[in-house]
């Protein structure tokens, strides 16, 4: 994870048509920890939500063959069950709940060493054309880096 760059997902472990499992390793240090919190570094809850959103987003990007972008627009329920500190290895899962016209819904969860860390129900995404070619290219590059796209994929 590079928290300050919002790069939350490090590696895709498993990808199926309707689910994804990914890994995210919390760095030992980050400017984020300087404020959150002094002397007690914790990954902010909103970034755990972002991490789950990115897992769901990559699942949707895979289903769309990276032809469109998924933008988070809402969630029904979020539970943040335990603190996450530096150097924690997180397993992030997301599964498709519904694919509508121009939107999609996923559930997602984070665990660490088998313990439940966070969950989100009905995370909704707006599916839109990429608003900028730079974003489409950046997503393609990142998808390849984390193993969402294989080298032979377009």
């Amino acid at each position: 994870m590079r928290l300050e760059y919002f790069q939350m997902i490090d590696r895709v472990l498993e990808l199926a048509p309707e689910s994804i499992t990914a890994e995210a390793l919390v760095p030992p240090a980050s400017p984020v920890f300087e404020g959150h919190f002094p002397g007690h570094p914790l990954v902010p809850g909103v970034l755990l939500v972002e991490t789950m959103a990115q897992a769901g987003g990559y699942l949707l990007l895979s289903r769309l063959n990276l032809s469109r972008m998924a933008f988070l627009i809402g969630t029904r329920e979020v539970k943040l069950r335990s603190f996450v500190g530096p150097e924690t290895r997180l397993t992030v899962t997301a599964k498709l709940v519904h694919e509508g016209s121009g939107f999609a819904v996923t559930d997602a969860a984070i665990t660490a060493a088998g313990r439940r860390v966070a969950e989100v129900k009905e995370m909704k995404f707006s599916i839109r054309d990429f608003p900028a070619p730079e974003l489409a290219e950046a997503m393609r590059v990142r998808a390849r880096e984390i193993g969402l796209l294989k080298d032979q994929d377009s």
């Binding site: 627009i73 809402g74 519904h98 509508g100 016209s101 939107f103 819904v105 909704k124 707006s126």
Partner: peptide, 13 residues
Amino acid sequence: SLDFLDIVFAIDK
């Protein structure tokens, strides 16, 4: 538009 998507999701289901 955001509420409408929620409504469409519920209609789909």
